[in-house]
Amino acid sequence: MRRASLAALALAAAACGTGASAPTAHRVEIRAFRYLPDTVTAAPGNTVVWTNADVVPHTARAAGAWDTGEIGAAGEGRIVAGAPGTYRYDCAYHPTMHAVLVVR
């Protein structure tokens, strides 16, 4: 009887895991005034996290779509990917810094 109960419990747990997967986090490092990697592909609902390894503040912003706000030295900024599309983004303080977030 106990063995049958454990088997039923295992099957129930497996069935619960077949639904939608948990949101995924994508990490971008800011180092030497660059976004690494410079292209990230995410699904809607995924989180994108920027970690600043430089000693000066940065941002990550896509005009009219999203903005992390200031990310201080050793700090993090994050957004949740929204509508599908290709979002070219830059740093408000250092306009030569560019990267791309593809949401699909």
Rank of each mutant, 00 (worst) to 15 (best):
A32N: 09
V40C: 03
G77Y: 03
A8Q: 13
I71V: 10
V40T: 02
P37H: 12
I30K: 04
M97W: 04
A74N: 12
V80P: 00
H58S: 01
R61I: 14
G85A: 06
V28S: 11
C91S: 14
A60I: 12
T59R: 10
G85W: 09
L11W: 04
C91D: 11
A65Y: 14
A4D: 08
A8H: 14
T41H: 03
P44F: 05
D38Q: 11
H94R: 15
S5R: 15
V48W: 12
A74P: 04
R88F: 09
A7P: 14
R31L: 14
A12N: 01
T24F: 06
T86M: 15
A92E: 06
V48C: 11
R104L: 15
A4C: 02
A83F: 01
R78I: 00
I79W: 04
S5L: 15
P44C: 05
G85C: 10
V80K: 01
A32L: 08
C16T: 10
P23Y: 03
G19F: 00
H26L: 08
T68S: 02
D90E: 05
H98F: 09
R78G: 01
S21T: 04
A81E: 04
L36N: 12
A83W: 09
L101Y: 06
D90T: 09
A81T: 04
G75C: 09
G17M: 03
T51A: 11
R27E: 14
T24I: 08
A83M: 07
H26W: 12
V40H: 02
A65E: 15
A63D: 06
T96P: 08
P44N: 11
A25M: 09
V102D: 00
A4H: 02
R88H: 10
G82P: 07
A10Y: 07
V49C: 03
Y89D: 02
V103I: 06
P84Q: 12
V28N: 02
A4T: 01
D90V: 02
